[in-house]
Amino acid sequence: MRGWGCGSRCWGRCGSPAATAPRTAAIAALIHLRPGRTADALCRAMDPANPWSTRTLHTRLSELRSAIGLHTDGQPLLPRPKTGAGYVFHPAVTSDWTQFQTLARQGLAAGPNAGIKDLEAAMALVRGKPFDGRTPPWADPVIQDMLSRITDTAHTLARWQTDSTRPDLDAARHTVHKGLEVEETSEVLYRDLLSIEWAAGNDAAIRRTLARIQQMARTYDITLEDTTEDTITLVLSGKPAPSETNTVPV
């Protein structure tokens, strides 16, 4: 996920404020995604094998404060915590991950007739793998949660775009490809892609997708789910796609 911001301030990829050193960016991501940690906890989380020194932490926090500055109300965007308290950003500091979750919740609650725009806006915030494909020691559960939510949102949006009264297969295809850029082992997204290309009557794209699935399975030593195998059999059956693709296994 990219983008943090406060008002007009825009930060780069989640965990990478623009023009900020990687370690400074990493501590910023930790404070934002796991607020309330004390200085000692931050030092340990950043490198469990060789915890940061207090001096190193304060240097990075000083760099971070210089990078993000003050809020329009004059308050620091990263206040110094009171004795014994943990580090928390000013409420004005947001991230595209927070925005993604808000938009996804709104879209899902609105349903397929009214929720597509919110889900499309959520997926527009997804640009590459969380943390640029790197996993800080503390971030594995955060990344897994991001991957799960992005995959679920992409799957739902693609189905809605495909099954609407005015199907948009191009939009659905784009949604699935974006999801697969983030989670290349997601079988539900491959099934969605097969269903989309079957509905489009695009035999060449079906073959390419099958080759991609097989390569993924070999690379990660994965045994495909029965539902995926069923979908493959169905799209290769020579039968025409149903008018409503929600009859295809997902």
Score class of each variant (00 low, 15 high):
92 A>V: 05
246 N>E: 14
165 T>K: 03
205 A>Y: 04
59 T>G: 07
65 R>P: 07
18 A>F: 10
191 R>C: 05
145 D>H: 10
107 G>I: 06
249 P>K: 03
223 T>H: 10
87 Y>C: 14
85 A>H: 13
165 T>N: 00
30 L>T: 08
59 T>Y: 09
208 R>C: 06
209 T>N: 06
24 T>G: 09
2 R>F: 09
218 R>W: 00
167 P>G: 05
110 A>E: 15
26 A>K: 10
44 R>E: 15
178 K>N: 11
219 T>A: 04
250 V>M: 03
193 L>H: 01
107 G>T: 06
7 G>F: 01
135 T>P: 08
238 G>H: 10
221 D>W: 03
41 A>Y: 06
127 R>I: 14
224 L>A: 04
175 T>C: 02
69 G>D: 06
245 T>G: 05
231 T>Q: 13
39 A>Q: 15
6 C>F: 11
60 R>N: 14
76 P>G: 06
180 L>F: 04
149 R>P: 03
124 A>C: 04
146 M>I: 12
65 R>G: 03
29 A>L: 09
193 L>E: 02
1 M>Y: 12
23 R>M: 14
162 T>C: 08
179 G>C: 04
49 A>T: 01
48 P>C: 08
56 T>M: 09
57 L>A: 10
61 L>M: 11
139 A>P: 08
140 D>V: 11
68 I>V: 15
246 N>Y: 05
182 V>N: 01
177 H>K: 13
5 G>N: 12
154 A>F: 03
45 A>F: 11
114 A>E: 12
206 I>S: 06
55 R>A: 11
180 L>I: 09
146 M>S: 07
139 A>H: 08
154 A>N: 02
9 R>T: 14
203 D>G: 03
190 Y>F: 10
117 K>H: 09
244 E>D: 13
244 E>P: 00
116 I>A: 10
101 Q>S: 13
174 H>I: 08
199 A>D: 04
138 W>R: 02
149 R>D: 10
192 D>W: 00
105 R>Y: 06
27 I>K: 05
45 A>I: 15
221 D>Q: 04
146 M>T: 04
179 G>Q: 02
156 T>I: 03
203 D>M: 05
221 D>R: 10
2 R>C: 08
178 K>A: 07
216 M>H: 00
129 K>L: 08
213 I>E: 11
12 G>M: 13
12 G>L: 14
79 P>W: 00
105 R>W: 07
71 H>N: 00
17 P>M: 12
49 A>Q: 13
129 K>T: 15
23 R>F: 12
141 P>Y: 03
54 T>G: 14
113 N>I: 06
13 R>A: 12
4 W>V: 13
76 P>W: 02
182 V>Q: 02
155 H>I: 00
249 P>H: 08
162 T>D: 01
245 T>K: 06
84 G>H: 12
35 P>H: 09
97 W>H: 11
237 S>G: 14
121 A>T: 05
83 T>V: 07
133 G>V: 07
213 I>Q: 08
130 P>L: 07
143 I>P: 12
166 R>T: 14
243 S>M: 01
141 P>A: 12
95 S>R: 08
195 S>A: 15
24 T>L: 10
6 C>R: 13
155 H>D: 03
168 D>N: 15
63 E>V: 05
134 R>F: 09
62 S>C: 06
193 L>Y: 03
164 S>I: 02
238 G>Y: 07
